[in-house]
């Protein structure tokens, strides 16, 4: 019952979020600010993770398929496929759920317990729309760019680790990266990214918006935001993979 209650309330909140905005110009200004806060400021952690992720995939692939029957370029091929199909869109989204999701829940939750959301409501402002819609649009617009950067950096990290440690030649790696490339996998990854971005923004905002109590409860909402966003992302990942790849 509790789960159904939350699902129902979540969709009712989304109904409020997508109702007509008071002033479009204000919403757009807020969206740009959120793109900076939630997207651009996540670039550092995304870059760092992606570089090391690619490096580790390269080393692990090489050590696990060390057979003369398997061509060397398979390492580059594996890094590209696993990065584009899964690691960048899913793992980076899970990381962003931690960073961005907790920020969203804490910000909105603090506003709730400090009566700032009540103040918006009393003024006649659609508080759900004003606070949440710019975050949804911002993450849906900026996360695909973050994931594309992550893809490049992961593949580059793999090349760097492979060539610097001498486990694979640069030409073999690049051959593997270019081998049998189907652009659809990028489309698939970006569709997943946008869906995951919407999940992160809405699930976290839901947790923050319905916070009751004080600062301790804001912390609990932040944790719940990360956990539930991750769970919903994993379920959506499975469903989207079946839908788009089978």
């Amino acid at each position: 019952m509790s789960l159904l209650y939350h699902i129902g309330r979540y969709f009712m909140l989304l109904g409020e979020v997508f109702s007509k905005p008071e002033r479009l110009s204000i919403y757009w200004k807020r969206t740009v600010e959120e793109m900076d806060l939630l997207g651009v400021k996540s670039l550092g952690i995304v870059s760092l993770l992606s570089l090391f992720m690619g490096a580790v995939i390269t080393i692990q692939t090489k050590t696990n398929i060390d057979s003369p029957l398997i061509p060397q370029y398979v390492v580059g091929f594996t890094v590209r496929q696993s990065t584009i199909l899964e690691f960048s869109p899913t793992i980076i989204s899970l990381i962003l759920a931690g960073k961005v999701g907790s920020t969203i829940a804490a910000e909105i939750g603090s506003m709730r317990v400090r009566e700032q959301i009540d103040a918006l409501d009393i003024m006649g402002v659609n508080s759900a729309g004003y606070l949440i819609l710019p975050k949804i649009i911002a993450t849906a617009l900026i996360n695909p760019f973050l994931i594309i950067i992550s893809m490049f950096l992961s593949i580059f990290g793999g090349w760097l680790a492979g060539t610097l440690s001498g486990i694979i030649s640069s030409s073999d790696y690049i051959t593997g990266v270019q081998y049998d490339f189907d652009p659809y996998i990028v489309t698939y990854a970006l569709i997943k990214t946008v869906v995951f971005a919407v999940i992160i923004a809405t699930v976290s905002a839901y947790q923050g918006y319905y916070t009751t109590g004080g600062t301790r409860e804001v912390g609990i909402s932040s944790t719940k935001a990360v956990v539930y966003s991750d769970v919903v992302i994993l379920i959506a990942n499975y469903l989207l993979t079946q839908l788009l790849l089978l």
């Binding site: 400090r114 009566e115 700032q116 009540d118 103040a119 409501d121 009393i122 003024m123 006649g124």
Partner: peptide
């Protein structure tokens, strides 16, 4: 109607 209401909160509720 809400645009005709002003409210001062206990916590001030300033942004």
């Amino acid at each position: 109607l809400r645009q005709e209401i002003g409210m001062l909160f206990q916590s001030n509720a300033l942004f």
